[in-house]
Design a protein around this nucleic acid. Structure first.
Length: 312
DNA sequence: TAAATTTGACCCCT
DNA sequence: AGGGGTCAAATTTA
């Protein structure tokens, strides 16, 4: 069965993906200095190409990794997204509405996840291992908490803040892993994509809306993609997080996710492969950043991408 | 006072 | 029957 993953066609696909990534890497590498002098269109073009190349590469990598079981602890400095199984098999019709005889409590509606489970277009589920489960750029409202068998910590349930306003069916639950890693690792299981405008994650000034990707764990590409997909994921130092209990509020307007923070990647360090490029003085950088809020963040994200691509 | 969270009860699936 | 997910009244917070 596993041999099916070693087909010649897969090798071709891989070569194509590698070539694509390499091409984008070279382009970013060459043109990166220009990014520092406020070329938004160039940055947008580069990032767009990078995302496309990453998509190709990741899809190939996914095909070559039939069992992405997260047996090992994923990196804790960035979130890792893993495709999850469909939450439920389709069940009977959802026509039973408030048929229970009212006792002390009001009769309840049928479980929403069951209802949405029949809606194949909007139903999706994926898992995200992260140390910062509350900083994913969306607004959530907690609606439940439960002790789950075999776990040491309670599981918290969240739904989109705009469920009532926009009918957004996105939900997630956060489960702290039992591992004793210093920054606690949380497994965040998302159900249903955001259908509300407020739930869209928008990169600074780019207006690029990203859907949650399906990625294999523990790859450089994943880290790069995660950084691009959710650059705000690393905004809060672990020391400032709640150690084990879940914070009451995670309110952070999606579009208002601050761009004042940057990633903690190696891009600011001397070992970065992109450090060979000329560095503008602080005044120039400040001017560029001021002229375009979020530009400095984008520049760093592209630098991170550049760093990641070099391994391909 | 409105909005968000807490928490026990309830519903549905396995 | 038990477990996971959700509801909604009660409580807390801003």
């Amino acid at each position: 069965m596993a041999a099916a993953w070693c087909m010649p066609a897969a090798a071709d696909e891989r070569e194509r993906a590698v070539a694509e990534v390499a091409q984008v890497y070279e382009r970013i590498k060459i043109q990166q200095p220009l990014l520092q002098v406020h070329h938004q269109q160039l940055a947008q073009s580069l990032l767009s190409d990078a995302l496309r190349a990453l998509n190709v590469a990741l899809s190939v990598m996914k095909q070559q990794r039939p069992s992405p079981a997260p047996a090992t602890t994923p990196p804790v400095t960035s979130s890792v997204v893993v495709k999850a199984e469909s939450p439920r098999s389709p069940s009977a019709s959802a026509d039973s509405e408030a048929i229970a005889t009212p006792t002390e409590r009001r009769p309840k509606k049928r479980r929403s996840s069951v209802m949405e489970g029949n809606n194949k277009t909007s139903s999706s589920s994926w898992v995200d291992f992260t140390t910062v489960p509350y900083e994913d750029g969306y607004e959530w409202r907690k609606y439940g908490e439960k002790k789950i068998n075999g776990t040491s910590y309670t599981r918290s349930y969240f739904r989109c803040t705009y469920k009532d306003d926009a009918g957004c069916l996105a939900t997630k639950h956060v489960q702290q892993k039992d591992s004793s890693s210093d920054p606690p690792v949380f497994q965040v299981t998302y159900n249903n994509k955001h259908t509300c405008n407020n739930g869209k994650l928008i990169l600074p000034f780019m207006n690029i809306k990203l859907e949650p990707p399906v990625l294999p764990p523990n790859t450089l590409a994943v880290q790069a993609y995660s950084a691009l997909h959710d650059p705000f994921d690393q905004t809060m130092p672990p020391s400032q997080q709640e150690p084990s209990s879940l914070p009451v509020s995670m309110q952070q307007p999606c579009g208002a996710a601050t761009s004042s923070t940057t990633t903690s990647s190696c891009i600011s360090g001397a070992e970065s492969c992109c450090d060979e490029f000329p560095v503008l003085d602080m005044a120039q950088m400040a001017a560029a950043a001021e002229a375009s809020p979020g530009y400095d963040l984008l520049y760093e994200e592209l630098s991170l991408l550049c760093d990641s691509f070099k391994f391909y």
